[in-house]
Design a protein around this nucleic acid. Structure first.
Lengths: 210, 210, 210, 210
DNA sequence: GATGAATGAGAATTCATTCAT
DNA sequence: TATGAATGAATTCTCATTCAT
């Protein structure tokens, strides 16, 4: 400690002002990025745009992220990080195929309805260009789903069908239906989840017959 | 007149040398763009990259397209233009729900397996960023699907469920499953179509119960 | 008819269609240029703009002019060519200092009021940039004025003062006052001429005293 | 206070190193632009040319000006800003028509003879194209002259004649005569001023009679 | 760590001009 | 001669990134 202070403030708080500011800055950048991406779309957004939406200086950006890509990743990872555990928890808790499927969709659509901005940042775009970045975190989420599917099959919860195709189908339905849902006047995650759930509950059995 | 025909095509094709060159150039640019997008991804591709993949001069690009975005659109529109009629034909010909669903997916996956490059250009990514542009042509394709769904419901082929969600689900499954399919050693459109078809055939009935 | 094709048209009119067309094209270009320059200003105008205002093809332009500069020159020269003889005639006919000065200004302001477009093409501009090109023809006009001034001095019509300064002063007053005149609701060349004339009639005598 | 003065300027000048550099850069660009415009003429000058005449990077230019037009404006505004107060002071101090007129022209021609480069930048031409930009500052200068003319009329110093025409005449004579003056071996602002002054002193009376 | 100006590579785009038809 | 697409040099301008303060 004496080494560190050397003429500086005598009291070095463990979670000092420094750390607080750093976190605040990082958060500010992420927040700004989220809204700018949502507005301009990923492609059209520049680092400058993000900084401008902040009261930080341009150089400061680079203390936190290497590029706009990295912020985008961070946003998605953060998002994924927020939903993934919930999704996994639902599926692990699942005692039936109904639980498995409906738990997954309910959680997903609820989250989307909540964190509108992030979803828009990830899917929306200028010039009608949609962007999705498959960050490690997101891919991990997909893998997790696949793993859980496989486990459920082994446990006899799900019939033995093509796990990759099933995972892809669930992902595809989740994202596309979410978009439709969010375009409606009053997004109804429950209805969306019900639709998707029934579709898969009915469908998976049919596929099984193959 | 007799002089004019002289052993050439009896009906004057629009084939001055000028016109031929123009068409060839346009095609060359589209071809180049398709492959560059597929390789670098939309985001990372620059107009220069596209031109470079061509033996045309930089300025020539702008005689045909205003920006990389416009070429991208053209590629997608062309693609959509190629598949849409086939999809529609399948669905119109459909006399049963099986025809409707399986016709749609068979056609789609067959097409994807065939026109690999376009599909990659549309879906592939640099830096793991996936891009999809909703061009008028593509949106029209989705609308068409929705219309056909509604018609099929009226005709009693399909049960009365949320048409938007159904459309979105089919689109989502189609694109995501196609991607998985194309990642495999030997893409098997038939298997993919079968999976998707059974999923929906079984699922739609279940949704209906709501 | 068969005869016609063989070589060229059998009847070679002395002032044939060719010559007529050529003149028409040249005129069309000049006309278009005048109006485009007046609208966009010299700097912002491109050759393409001029052609576009024509129903000719871009290549055709170069059969008549080498560059936009050359058209600009042509316009000014044409203008100068139209006024110069009148100005000179006035001054030659002058039997008194009054005739000399007033004849010059009357002719000039009358012309400006008449050929508004050319004047604007020469003086007006986008972005408030005024342009004046001193073409040979224009310079010749100034020189002529100087010569006539010198002659008039020798003839005792004008007092012996600095001819260059006098020429410059007349030119400066002519152009600036013309601009003010043209900005007014109803341009009154007579009033402008009277003002300038009196200014110089009174002023020249005063300068003489030096 | 005594502490602060310490031999340096007593009033803290805005002199961080950053500020110094910024000012220096701005000045460097203006300086370079002035000389490039004077050499190549406004039309032929490109932003690159200006940058090249500087040891700054291309991007730096755009930290200070948006376009060559803006630099040009800045040059003229600066010039106007330098002369205008002097001109105005002369005219305000004027107790007679002689003071008014001669003060104006003396000051103007003296300035032109001094700041040769700026004047050339403003008037000189490539391809014999002369450019003049009516910046707000310049227009303000003209307006000021007109105002002072009107005031002088009200004060009885000047006869009641067309103030716009008089202003325009003075401006026209000033610029054109200045050009002639600067073309001569040894520019003689005094002679030029005398010529213009006498011209107007004599002339204004004559116009008045109308 | 924050700041924000400088940097300069490189992208987009224009446009005068040529030349095959 | 007219046409109008191709050409590609040249220009403008942006923007990620660095670095002195």
């Amino acid at each position: 400690m004496s080494v560190e202070t050397k003429g500086e403030s005598p009291i070095a708080a463990p979670c000092g002002k420094r750390e607080q500011t750093k976190l605040a800055n990082r958060t500010a950048i992420l927040e700004a990025a989220r809204s700018v991406f949502a507005e301009l779309g990923y492609g059209a957004t520049t680092v400058r745009d993000i900084i401008r939406a902040t009261d930080l200086a341009s150089g400061t950006f680079y203390n936190y992220f290497k590029s706009k890509e990295e912020v985008f990743q961070a946003i998605q990872d953060e998002t994924a990080l927020r939903v993934r555990p919930r999704l996994r928890a639902e599926r692990i808790r699942a005692r039936s195929i109904e639980d498995f499927i409906s738990g997954t969709f309910r959680t997903f659509f609820d989250y989307v309805a909540t964190d509108h901005d992030s979803f828009r940042a990830i899917r929306r775009n200028t010039d009608s260009i949609r962007v999705r970045m498959d960050t490690p975190e997101i891919i991990a989420g997909f893998d997790e789903l696949r793993e859980d599917i496989v486990k459920a099959m082994k446990a006899g919860l799900l019939p033995h069908i093509d796990a990759d195709f099933l995972m892809a189908s669930m992902v595809g339905v989740a994202f596309e239906v979410a978009e439709i849902m969010m375009k409606r006047e009053t997004p109804d995650p429950k209805a969306a989840a019900e639709f998707a759930t029934r579709l898969f509950l009915g469908g998976i059995g049919a596929v099984k017959k193959v």
